[in-house]
Each structure stands twice: as C-alpha cells, then as structure tokens.
Amino acid sequence: MALNKQIAEVEKKIRAAFEAFDYQSNNTVDVREIGTIIYSLGRFPSQAELHNFIAEVEEDQTGYIHLDRFLPAMSYVLMEHKFPPISEDVLLQAFEVLDSEKKGYLDPDDLSQYMMEEGETFTQEEMDEMLTALTDHETNLIYSKDLLNHLIMDPEV
C-alpha cells in the first residue's frame, strides 16, 4: 500500500509540473519545455539523455508531448532515480561563483545577463519564468538559500 501512495505522490508532482507548461490546457506541452519540466522535478539529464527521453515520449514528431506518454516515462525516471539531481555542494559552489562578493544573494539582472550569454543560453521567456519563481518579491533579490530550496528535491521522490 505504501508503494501505491508513493506512486500517487510522484504522479501528482509530475502532473503539476506538466500542467504549468500546458498553456492550451489540452494535456500537451511543447517538446521544448520537457527539459524545464524535468529540471523542475529535480532531475538533471545530460543532453543525450534528454534527447533520448524526448524521442521516447514524443509521438509522431509533432513537436508536442502528451501527458499520457510523459506521465509513465517520468514516473519511471523518478521512481528509479534516473537523471540524478545535482548535489547541494555543487549548486552552492555554482552560486558562489556568481556571488563573487559573498553577499548571499544575486541581483536578477546580473543572473539574467549571465544565463543568457554563457554556456547553454536561456531565452528571455525562460529567464522570466525562472526569476518569477526564484526572486524574493520584497527585496527583488535571489538568495542562495531560496535557490537551493527550489533546486533540491526531496530524495524520497
């Protein structure tokens, strides 16, 4: 019975993450959102793993993923601990690289500039979504503790 409850909790988290990107409310999301959904669930596949996952769940190369195909595949990923999460130490080190003055927070504009110009760059829309979730609305800053809380998932899932 405990396993069924755990599966139900996992599926609930997956549905919530999926529905956040189901802009048409038709149980489909743009294939380009899948990486963000997986990251929001605390899993971090390599680009090759992400590509293979998308190939598994995308139907007929339509550019859209249906919840009916995504839910069982993502449930398996979470239940079997595939695409391991990034450790808290590694995340903290990354934050500290950006927080060179050791203030404990980042300015959203500085983070946006970095994320849109370095490595695998983010789009303005992706940055806006991320900053909405991470920025303290009273101070308009991104604190390391809040960032870590958003990026580190419950190890039970």
Rank of each mutant, 00 (worst) to 15 (best):
M1N: 00
L3N: 06
N4L: 09
N4H: 06
K5Q: 13
I7E: 11
I7L: 14
A8C: 00
E9N: 05
E9P: 01
E11D: 07
K13G: 10
I14H: 01
R15V: 13
F18N: 04
F18W: 03
F21T: 03
D22G: 05
Y23F: 06
Q24D: 13
S25C: 11
D30S: 14
R32Q: 14
E33H: 14
I34L: 06
G35E: 11
G35R: 08
T36L: 08
T36M: 06
T36W: 02
Y39G: 02
S40L: 03
L41N: 01
F44G: 04
Q47F: 06
A48H: 08
A48S: 10
A48V: 14
A48I: 13
E49H: 12
N52F: 13
N52R: 13
E56P: 07
E56I: 09
V57L: 06
V57D: 00
E59F: 05
Q61Y: 15
H66L: 10
H66T: 13
L67P: 03
L67E: 06
D68C: 08
D68A: 11
R69K: 15
R69W: 09
F70I: 07
F70M: 01
P72M: 02
M74H: 06
V77R: 03
L78E: 02
M79I: 10
E80K: 14
H81C: 11
K82G: 00
S87D: 09
E88C: 07
D89E: 10
Q93M: 08
F95N: 02
L98E: 04
D99I: 07
E101G: 11
K102F: 13
G104C: 04
G104L: 04
P108H: 05
P108I: 03
D109Q: 14
S112W: 08
S112V: 10
Q113W: 13
Y114H: 09
E117K: 05
E117C: 07
E118C: 14
E120I: 09
E125A: 15
E125M: 12
E126M: 08
M127N: 03
D128C: 04
E129T: 09
L131N: 03
L131E: 00
L134M: 10
L134K: 03
D136M: 08
H137E: 15
H137R: 13
E138F: 12
E138N: 15
L141E: 08
L141S: 05
I142T: 02
Y143K: 03
K145H: 15
D146M: 01
D146L: 01
L147V: 00
H150A: 11
I152W: 01
M153H: 09
D154I: 04
P155N: 06
P155F: 06
